[in-house]
C-alpha cells in the first residue's frame, strides 16, 4: 500500500523551507567558531558573548526598544481615536475617503515615506535623532492601528451603544464601558503590529537617524556592509527569537480574547 502524495502539502513544505532556510542558515553559523559562513568548524557561543559585551550595541538595542514601545503606545492611542472618528463619520463617501487615505499610507513604499520625513524634518528644523525617529515611527504605525481596530468596531452591534445609552450612560460611559472593552482585542492586535513594524523598520529609520543615534536594523545594516562578523548573525538570531516570542505571545492573547469575545458581534 502506497500512501498518496499530497501535492498541496508538499508545496507548502517547499515554500516554508525556501522562506526559512536563509534564517536557519544564518542562525546555524552564528555558532560557528571558524568565523566564516561557509565552513562550520565547531560550536561556540563566542559571538553571543561579543554581542553582550558590546556596550554601544546594547545601547542601540535599548534605543530600539524605547522607540518601539513609545511609538507603538502613542500610535495605538492615536490610531484608536482615528478609528473611532472614521466609525462615527456618517457619510459613506467621506468614510471611504478617510479609509483610502489611511490605506495609501500603508501601501506606499517606505523609501518615499522616509525621504519625505527627512525633507519635512529639515524644513521645520527638527534635529535628526531620537525625536525624528520616534515621530516617523508613530506616523507610519498609526494607519496600521486604525486598520486593526476598525474591523472590530464594525463588528460591534450598534444596538450595544443604544442599549448603553438606554441604561443611562452618557457619551463618556459609552466609550469607556462599552466601546473600548469591546474593541480591546483589536487594540492589542494594533499595538503588537505597531511594535513589530517599529522594531524591524529599516528604510524609514535609515533616512531620519542622524549622527550618533541608531536603531538595531540600521546598525546591523552598517555592520554588515563593513564586513562579515558573525556577531551580526548572533544579533540577528536573538532578534529572530524575540520576534517569534512576540508572535507566540500575540497568539495566546488573541486566543484568550476570542474566547472572551466570541459573541455579541453583528449577525
Amino acid at each position: 500500500m502506497k500512501r498518496k502524495v499530497k501535492w498541496d502539502n508538499l508545496y507548502l513544505i517547499i515554500m516554508f523551507v525556501i522562506l526559512y532556510t536563509p534564517i536557519f542558515y544564518l542562525i546555524y553559523y552564528s555558532f560557528n567558531s571558524g568565523g566564516t559562513m561557509h565552513h562550520f568548524q565547531g560550536f561556540t557561543l563566542e559571538w553571543y558573548k561579543e554581542v553582550f559585551q558590546d556596550t554601544r550595541l546594547l545601547i542601540i538595542v535599548l534605543n530600539t526598544f524605547v522607540i518601539a514601545l513609545l511609538a507603538s503606545a502613542i500610535s495605538t492611542i492615536l490610531g484608536v481615536m482615528g478609528a473611532l472618528a472614521i466609525y462615527y463619520v456618517k457619510k459613506r463617501r467621506m468614510k471611504n475617503l478617510l479609509l483610502t487615505l489611511n490605506n495609501v499610507l500603508i501601501v506606499s513604499p517606505d523609501v518615499i515615506i522616509g525621504a519625505s520625513f527627512l525633507i519635512l524634518f529639515t524644513i521645520i528644523g527638527i534635529q535628526l535623532g531620537f525625536t525624528s525617529v520616534l515621530l516617523s515611527h508613530i506616523a507610519f504605525s498609526v494607519p496600521i492601528v486604525v486598520l486593526m481596530v476598525l474591523p472590530k468596531l464594525q463588528e460591534m452591534s450598534p444596538t450595544l451603544i443604544d442599549a448603553a445609552r438606554d441604561l443611562g450612560a452618557n457619551q463618556w460611559n459609552v466609550l469607556t464601558k462599552v466601546i473600548l472593552p469591546f474593541i480591546t482585542p483589536g487594540i492589542f492586535a494594533g499595538f503588537f503590529m505597531a511594535l513589530t513594524y517599529s522594531l524591524d523598520d529599516f528604510a524609514v529609520t535609515f533616512f531620519v537617524t542622524g549622527n550618533g543615534f541608531s536603531t538595531l536594523s540600521v546598525e546591523i545594516y552598517s555592520r554588515a556592509r563593513q564586513g562579515i562578523s558573525l556577531s551580526i548573525n548572533a544579533l540577528s538570531t536573538l532578534l529572530f527569537l524575540f520576534t517569534v516570542l512576540l508572535v507566540v505571545g500575540y497568539y495566546f492573547i488573541s486566543q484568550r480574547s476570542s474566547r472572551l469575545y466570541g459573541m455579541g458581534g453583528r449577525k
Binding site: A163, A164, P181, Y261, G264
Partner: peptide, 10 residues
C-alpha cells in the same frame, strides 16, 4: 432589544 444587546465583555 431584539438582539438583546447584552454586553459580551461583562
Amino acid at each position: 432589544f431584539q438582539d438583546y444587546a447584552l454586553f459580551p465583555h461583562l
